[in-house]
Design a binder for these strands. Structure first.
Length: 431
RNA sequence: GGAGAGUUGUCCGAGUUGGCCGAAGGAGCAGCAUUGGAAAUGCUGUAUACGGGUUAAAGCCUGUAUCAAGGGUUCGAAUCCCUUACUCUCCGCCA
């Protein structure tokens, strides 16, 4: 949520900044009109309420003194009717106002590449050596299915498209990867959390998924409950409505959760493989910081995500997303994209964003500064990392010509010493 | 799922014959005094949001709202009624 007071003060700034995210100037004007109307109505109704409070006080005094107050009561009764009418207007106006406000995205940080599409993102750095294959690398789904560790067919039968079974060493590899990720984040100062996977609408609103992005999620039938599309929701809403003691800041948390996404509107995209699933595992990082620290913290968080890829040994690059490609709540986003040799391109594996006070305003999450004043915290979130996509990248980048997959060195202990997945050891019951 | 009790400020806790309640009292915290310094003690202060006025600003003045949330009754509700959420106790069920 943007600060209406700031919009009031400098509408042109907001029009200009939000234009880079596809918001028309008229939408700002509309919000300002509603705000003006709101204040006009408030003044009228509050004046009437003051009058009524005053009169009621006098009635109370009269009654206590045993005097009659019938006339005064009669007069005040009319005031009540007027107030009720105005209150309804205020409420109706507020509803529209809040709805419009809650659909305006965050202001992009200075320097974020301006573009109305995803084209134009800026590459910050390229890390890791892209392997030179002396055979044609297979897609990860072929590697996985040939080994028997991924079974899309039976998942399709049991659940539907965009689901998968991991089997044997495949399932263990997934577990090895996320355990490794969590352990690394703990070394970097994050506290591990195991949050709820189903949340209420207030939480979805708090992190900005609602009201604008209801289509992408799974809603529990007939209930005010949503399957989390990312652990960002339960991790960030942890402090919704709270004042965080200054001494606790910055707070670093991390969690492994499944993420559920309906992928409405993604028909035909990435229909094969682990890239775009209705259910996938992700290790998420969330930070609450003081405003002055959030940009530094974004760099650190990005480095925390990169650390995982460096240690596993997967080539990637880091890009800054364009004004339009960023998520609704973000002011700046760094994406990590993994090299997928069979696809011959980079695929997103992490998004690290600074949301400034945008989510904190929605959630009312504050802290008390040195002067004792309440201030909104800044929130950041980043994937650290998408587990399924990391596994996919391992299968592609570490595949051998004979169809086996070498386990990256750091993961071998997590695989209980297994150094290679072969047809022979992959799935015990399929021998 | 059934029955009952509860939800008040940072915390504890009073207030339920409706008006004198933004809300007693205590704790905590902050400032001042006392002290060589500290403890103890004493005094003072200690909500937030939104609007209006004023200010260079910090702030100050002022109005409205807020005693879980929403609605109702009433001139007026922390107090009465309804709905919902949550907490606790007992029973049932269950991993």
């Amino acid at each position: 949520m943007l600060d209406i007071k700031k919009i009031r003060k400098d509408p042109e700034f907001f029009k200009q900044k939000l234009a880079t995210r596809g918001i028309k100037a008229e939408e700002i004007d509309e919000v300002l009109e509603l705000d003006q109307k709101r204040r006009d109505l408030l003044q009228k109704t509050e004046a009437l309420k003051a009058q009524r409070n005053d009169a009621s006080k006098k009635i109370g005094e009269a009654k206590r003194n045993g005097e009659s107050a019938d006339d005064a009561i009669k007069e005040t009764r009319e005031l009540g009717d007027q107030i009720k009418e105005l209150d309804e207007k205020v409420e109706a106006n507020d509803e529209v106002f809040h709805d419009k406000m809650s659909r305006l995205p965050n202001i992009p940080h200075d320097g974020v590449p301006v573009s109305l599409t995803e084209e134009g993102s800026v590459e910050l750095r390229k890390v890791g050596k892209i392997r030179d294959f002396d055979f044609t690398p297979k897609h990860h789904w072929d590697v996985g299915e040939n080994l028997g560790i991924l079974d899309f067919d039976r998942a399709r039968k049991v659940s539907g498209a965009r689901f998968v079974y991991y089997l044997g060493l495949g399932a263990q590899l997934e577990r090895a990867v996320y355990n490794f990720m969590l352990d690394e984040h703990m070394k970097d100062g994050y506290t591990e959390v195991l949050p709820p996977y189903i949340v209420n609408a207030a939480s979805m609103y708090g992190t900005g998924q609602f009201p604008k992005f209801k289509k992408g999620v799974y809603q529990v039938n007939g209930e005010d409950m949503t399957l989390i599309p990312t652990a960002e929701v339960p991790l960030t809403n942890y402090y919704r409505g709270d004042v965080i003691p200054e001494s606790e800041l910055p707070v670093y948390v991390t969690a492994l959760t499944p993420c559920f996404r309906s992928e409405a509107g993604a028909a035909g995209r990435d229909t094969r493989g682990l890239i775009r699933m209705h259910q996938f595992n992700k290790v998420e990082m969330v930070k609450y910081t003081k405003p002055e620290d959030s940009w530094d913290e974004l760099e650190k968080m990005t480095a925390n995500a990169e650390n995982i890829l460096k240690k596993i040994g997967l080539p990637y690059h880091v890009i800054t997303l364009t004004t339009s490609d960023m998520s609704f709540t973000a002011s700046e986003t760094h994406d990590l994209e993994l090299w997928m040799p069979a696809q011959n391109k980079y695929r997103e594996v992490s998004s690290c964003s600074n949301c400034l006070d945008f989510q904190a305003r929605r959630m009312h999450t504050q802290y008390r500064d040195e002067n004792g004043k309440l201030q909104y915290v800044h929130t950041l979130n980043g994937s650290g990392l998408a587990v399924g996509r990391t596994v996919a990248a391992i299968l592609e980048n570490y595949q051998n010509e004979d169809g086996s997959v070498t386990i990256p060195e750091v993961l071998v202990p997590y695989m209980h010493g297994v150094t290679k997945i072969t047809k022979e050891n992959a799935v015990p019951f399929k021998k």
